[in-house]
Design a protein around this nucleic acid. Sequence first.
RNA 1: GCCCUGAUGGUGUAGUGGCCUAUCAUGCAGCCCUGUCGAGGCUGCGACCCGGGUUCAAAUCCCGGUCGGGGCGCCA
Length: 468
Amino acid sequence: MRDSSQWKSTAYRTHTIGQIVENGSELLGKEVIIAGYAETIRGRGAICFLMLRDGTGNIQAFLKKDNMDEEIFNSIQNSTRESTIQVKGMVAQKRPPKTDDGVPPPPEYEINVNYGSILANAAAPLPVGVTDDVHVGLDVRLDNRHLDLRRSHVNAMFQLRSKVLEYGREHLIGEGFMEMNSPKIIASASEGGTNLFPMMYFDTPAFLSQSPQLYKQLAVLGGLERVFEIGPAFRAEKHDTYRHLNEFISFDIEGAWMDDEDVMGVQERMIHHIWSCVAKKDQLLIDIINEYRVSQGHEEIIVNIPSLPFPRISYCDAIKIVKSGGGEIEWGDDIESNHCDIIAAEYPGFHFLPRWPMSMKPFYIHHKEDEKGSTGGQLSRGFDLNYGRDEMTSGGQREHRVEVLEQNLKNMGLNPDDFSFYTDGFRYGAPPHAGWGLGVARLLMVLTGAGNVREVVLFPRDRSRVTP
RNA sequence: GCCCUGAUGGUGUAGUGGCCUAUCAUGCAGCCCUGUCGAGGCUGCGACCCGGGUUCAAAUCCCGGUCGGGGCGCCA
C-alpha cells in the first residue's frame, strides 16, 4: 500500500485509511472521516462490519444501529461490494480476533461509525471479483481494467511501474541527462524496418512515431549533450506475443561524446540503481505480488540486484555459443528467440550483445572500418541488452559523419534525399554520440515476474485491442 | 503472415455420444446466528459462443462463422 503519511485532508476525508492504520494509537478517540470501496459488508441485524479500502490501506468500520440514523445504517448494510462509502466516526482499538495459538496479534484500529454516506453504489455482480480467490482470464481483466486495478497485486504492479520510472529518471538526471519530448506525429519513418501507422495531419499524410531516435539525436547535435525521453512509440506490426504491443513506452537516452560502451555503462548503472532502490524501499509491493503468486501456485519473485558490469557477449561470441549449444545459425543471421534460449542457459540474467554486423543494423549506426567479424563482414557499434531470452534494449553509437550516413542509406537501398531533414543536422559539425531505447514494460516483466507484457501496461494496445 | 489450440452460470472450472432437468468453487439473493474478521450455517438463483449438419440420441462428432489462448517470424 502507498505511503500516505504526508497526504493532506480533502473534501471527502480527513484522513487516509493508511494514516489511521499507521497512527491508530495517536488517533484513538478522535473523530475522523474516511472514504473508500466496500470490500465486504458483514452482519445483518443490529450490527454491521464494513471493510473499507482506499488506495492506502484497509480498515474495518463498525456500525451499530443504536449509534446512528437507522436509514443510513440500513442503506450501508444493504449496499453492494465495491460501492464507495464515506463514514464518520471515532478511531477505536479493534477487538482482537481469536487466534489458533491464543497469542493476541498486535493492536489494530477501527472506526466506530456515527454517520455515513454512500457516494456511489456498485452494480452486482461484479464482472471480475476484486477480492475473490478465483483466477480470472487476462482478456476479461483487460476488458474490465478499472476493476482489475482494484485487486491488490495488480495495483502493486502499477505502483512498481511508477517507481521504476521514478528511479530511472532519478538516475539519469544524476548522470547529467535532461528530459526532453519529441513529436509523435511525423512525416516519414524515423527508423527502417517496422511498419508505421498512417494518419492524416490536416491535408498531409503523416505517421505516428515509431521511435524518438532521430529527434533525440538532433537534440544532441544541437548541443543539449545528454538527453532522455520517456514516451510512446507506435509500431504497426501484426505480431501477437507475450512481449509485443503496438503502442509501448520506451525509455530512451542519447549522449554526446560517447560510444556504445559508454551508454551501456549508463544503462547498467541505471538498472542497478532501479533494482537497488526497489529492494531497499519497495519490498512491501513485492510482498503483495508474492502473496498473490503463492495463492496461484507460482514461485515467489525475489529482487536480485544484478552485479556490475553486466556480461558482454559480442555477436561473434554469441554465434559460437549458439552453435556449440546445438543451434543452427551462421554469421550474419539474426539471433532468434530459440537462440536466445541457448545463450540464456549460460547467461540467465542481464547481458549485453554488442558488435552486431553492420548489415543487420539501421543506417544511423556507427561502424569502425577496421572492425570485422570472423568471416570478414563489417561489424557495427550497435548492441542489444537481453534478460534471459527477451530483448530489453537496442542501442549503439550513432554515425556522426554525414558522408558515411548517406553511403549507409544508399547501401540499404534508401534514397538519402528522403532523409535530408535528418542528415542536414549533421552538415554543420556533429559530436560523436550514442544512445539506446529500453522497453519499460519488458523491464517491468523481469522485475515483477509478469508472464505477459499486458500485465504491466494499464491499457494495452495490441492487434485486436483498442479498447478500453 | 504461418503453425498449434480453445470457447460451459457474473468469474474460474468438471464433464470427449445416453449416467447431464450439467460438477465444484467463487459470486448473487434470502433466512438464521453474530464483535464478525478468509466469518459460519441453511435455502435458493444463474451456463453448454453463433449458424448448419451427422445420429434414435450432441456440451461432447463434422462443416462454416465469430471471439480467445499458445508458439514462430519481426522487434523494444
